[in-house]
Amino acid sequence: MKEKYLIAGPVTPALISELMTSGNEDTGAGAVAVFIGRVRDDEQDERRVSAIEYSAYEEMAVKETDVIIDTVRSAFSDVRSVVIVHSTGIVMAGEASLFIMVTAGHRDHATRACRHTLEMVKEKLPVWKKELF
């Protein structure tokens, strides 16, 4: 199963809950690894970040997400599904802007593939951010 999303606004708790139960019918997936990235209220030049506005090159992001998912599935044979959701638009500090979930038969490939997916998202997804104060 492959899923990929760019969504407007934060990755809400309701969406996270929905995504985390979406693969429950795959009873061979004994391990689920999840990464959630949230907006941090960093201080810059004596101002505190209140939100981040994300923008993306959507046409390319869809292609790159396909490449990321195919690469992860090729590298980790035990992986059964990869879900990537990234926000566009404004996400407030404390809210989630990135959700990655990898299911696998066993914990080793699930956790390592989740980390690998995260690093590829950081490197390859054409997304930009602008801090708002």
């Binding site: 994300y54 993306a56 990135l98 998202v121 950081k122 997804l125 054409p126 997304v127």
Partner: peptide
């Protein structure tokens, strides 16, 4: 052609 500054997702 798209002009792409360094990516900053996540």
């Amino acid at each position: 052609i798209a002009v792409l500054p360094p990516f900053a997702g996540g």
